[in-house]
Structures are given as C-alpha cells and as structure tokens.
Simulated assay, not measured.
Amino acid sequence: MKDTSHHDERIAKMSFASVYPHYVSRLERNGRTVEELHQVIEWLTGYTTKQLQEIIDNKVNFETFFKNATLNPNANLIKGVICGYRIEDITNKTTRECRYLDKLVDELAKGRKMDKILRQPK
C-alpha cells in the first residue's frame, strides 16, 4: 500500500464541523433525515445530539473527535471500499474510523435499512 501519511494527517486535522454540513446535505438530497444521521453517529461514537452540537461549535478535529469517542464494538464489521480505499486495509486508526463514518453515511444515503447500517443481528 502506498504511503498515505500526508493524507492521514490532513484527515486528522480536519474539523468535524467542516464535514458535517456535507453529510446533512447529501442525506437530505437522498430523502434521509438529520435524525437518522445522528442515530448513525451515536451508534458509531456514542455521542449524543447535544454532544455533537458542542463538537461542531468548538470545531473539534477528527483526531480529537475519535479519540474522545466510545467506538461501537461492532465498528470492525464495517467493511468495503469508500473514497477509493478498502476500509479493512487502512492502518491509520483515525483515518480508518473516519472512513467508518463515511461508509455509514454512504449506506444511509443509498437507502440501506437502518438495522443493516447499524450491524444489528437478524
């Protein structure tokens, strides 16, 4: 795999607040809601809607966002390709966790059922 250290550093320093509106607009264009987005984020990170608003207001970067999160134990079940990278092959922890979130938002936008997105047993 090629060296992605500059890419990893850029992702780590990017603020969650700068990406959040893009998540919202993509989902709303595809008939999904902010509430569903928050449900997905809470499942992955443990952050409540109130905590997310504080993160946005304080312009917390992704490195801190994931460092302070309580990652769902089933997050490792999130697999596949997102942004041209296979999630399972990403070695940088923060970048992999960001791609987990990107993948969940992508699945939500594509109309996948919530129980599948949240990796719920049948």
Score class of each variant (00 low, 15 high):
E36N: 02
E36F: 00
N76G: 07
G80H: 04
T33Y: 08
G46D: 11
N68S: 09
K13H: 08
V40I: 12
K122A: 11
R26L: 13
V81C: 10
P73T: 00
L104G: 11
N58L: 07
V24D: 04
G46P: 02
A69D: 02
D102M: 12
K122F: 00
N92M: 04
N72H: 15
I82S: 12
F16I: 01
S25I: 05
T49Y: 09
S25Q: 11
N72F: 03
R26A: 03
L104K: 05
S15F: 01
I78C: 04
K79P: 05
R112S: 12
L108R: 03
Y23Q: 09
R86N: 09
S18K: 15
N61C: 11
W43I: 03
L77C: 05
F66Y: 10
G111L: 04
E35S: 10
N74H: 11
I82L: 10
V34F: 07
N30G: 08
K2D: 05
N58R: 14
H6M: 09
N72D: 13
I87W: 02
F66C: 06
L27P: 00
L52M: 13
A12Q: 14
S5D: 03
K2P: 00
L118D: 02
L108A: 01
T70H: 15
R29M: 13
V105R: 07
R26G: 04
T94P: 05
A69K: 01
E63D: 12
D106Y: 14
V34W: 06
L44S: 02
L77F: 03
K116Y: 07
I90H: 09
A12R: 15
E42W: 01
R32H: 01
D102C: 08
K13L: 13
F65K: 03
I56G: 06
V40P: 11
Y85D: 14
T91K: 15
T49G: 10
A17Q: 10
H7R: 13
K110R: 15
P73G: 04
N30S: 12
K2I: 03
V105T: 05
Y20A: 02
R32P: 00
M114L: 13
T91C: 10
L37F: 05
R96A: 01
R86M: 11
E28M: 04
I117E: 02
V81G: 04
P73S: 01
N72W: 01
V19W: 02
E107C: 04
I11T: 09
D3G: 06
N74P: 02
R10T: 07
N30C: 05
Q120A: 09
E35T: 03
R96M: 12
D106L: 14
Q53Y: 01
D3Q: 02
G111M: 03
K79W: 00
F62R: 13
R29K: 14
T49R: 15
T70Q: 12
N30W: 00
V24Y: 00
N68G: 06
D3M: 00
T33C: 10
L37C: 05
W43R: 12
T91Q: 15
A69S: 13
Q39D: 08
T49C: 11
M14R: 15
I82G: 03
